[in-house]
Write a protein that binds this DNA or RNA. Structure first.
Lengths: 163, 163
DNA sequence: TATTGTTATACTCTATAACTATA
DNA sequence: TATAGTTATAGAGTATAACAATA
């Protein structure tokens, strides 16, 4: 009222955090996007007792009956030791069977059970809904270009690591 | 020679793993791409003794001198308890200072040191090179559309989680 | 010798509860 | 009472070395 307007306080408080420098980096944006994506997908799969890794493994076993753990690990790009507990958890729930392969007694032949295939189908529906929700702001073209761009980047970096 | 052509072996061995079902899912492709991206970025930052989290935190502190840990945690979308060790490691290397703020004695005011700013600049150069390497297969348009698409997805899902 | 699956182990990232000191 | 930072803790994901069984 009768006072002077408040003088700017002699603090160095930050009122708005600028992440301009970071926003320019694809890697940072990819991390942010992947984080919310993973959170939403985790929530989507929770009712089925599945996680991203177990869901992915289940699909691959359903689509490729008889594959070995090492093939599964390579396809999912995770280390064999880490595959063990993923397969453990699917087997424990009777979603897959894990039998010594007759063509190579070192290998485990993985196959989905009937229950495993049914659960996978149900989860697929939920995941489809999750993807639809996620891609709401993108038209068909934009979606295709996105997946293309991601594949190109994956190849660029995978090539670099190999060569 | 005089034998019949080899009869198909009665095994159920899988010679090629099909991930067709998965490739359709953006989430799966995003995970694959993010994984190679993160591996490459980790390697890129290793010479500077930085990781993705510490690098990101350092940039934000450089660009926003005086911000609090809680603001930093919110900007990076990680929990405050997890922020502590990130800031610890930056402070231990004298890349930042962590002082009680004069406007609120509960808060830590974070500022980059000269060494911190210099290291950040050098790391920025290396990360720029990493991004260039990564985006080799994409023209300017494709890069912009990619970052746009990622931002749209982030917003779609963040909105969903909030509302 | 090389490979498959396994165990043990360790490190990073993430998430929650509870404490302290300040507001 | 609410918030900022902290501690302790636990769960996932990821990575490597080493072993037994098998090829």
């Amino acid at each position: 009222m009768s006072e002077f307007p408040p003088t700017p306080q002699s603090t160095d408080a930050v009122d708005h955090v600028s992440d301009e420098t970071l926003r320019k980096l694809i890697g940072y944006q990819m991390k942010r996007t992947f984080n919310v994506l993973q959170a939403d997908l985790t929530e989507t799969l929770e009712p089925f007792g599945l996680r991203m890794l177990t869901y992915t493994a289940l699909i691959l076993i359903v689509d490729n009956p008889g594959l070995r753990q090492s093939q599964l690990a390579e396809a999912m790009d995770i280390e064999r030791p880490n595959m063990v507990i993923v397969v453990d958890s699917l087997e424990r729930r009777n979603l897959i069977t894990r039998n010594t392969a007759d063509y190579d007694r070192r290998a485990n032949s993985l196959k989905a059970t009937f229950a495993g295939r049914k659960l996978c189908e149900m989860a697929n529906e939920a995941v489809k809904a999750h993807e639809t929700r996620m891609l709401l702001g993108l038209d068909e073209n934009a979606r295709n270009r996105l997946i293309e761009a991601l594949q190109i980047i994956e190849k660029s970096l995978a090539k670099k690591l190999t060569g």
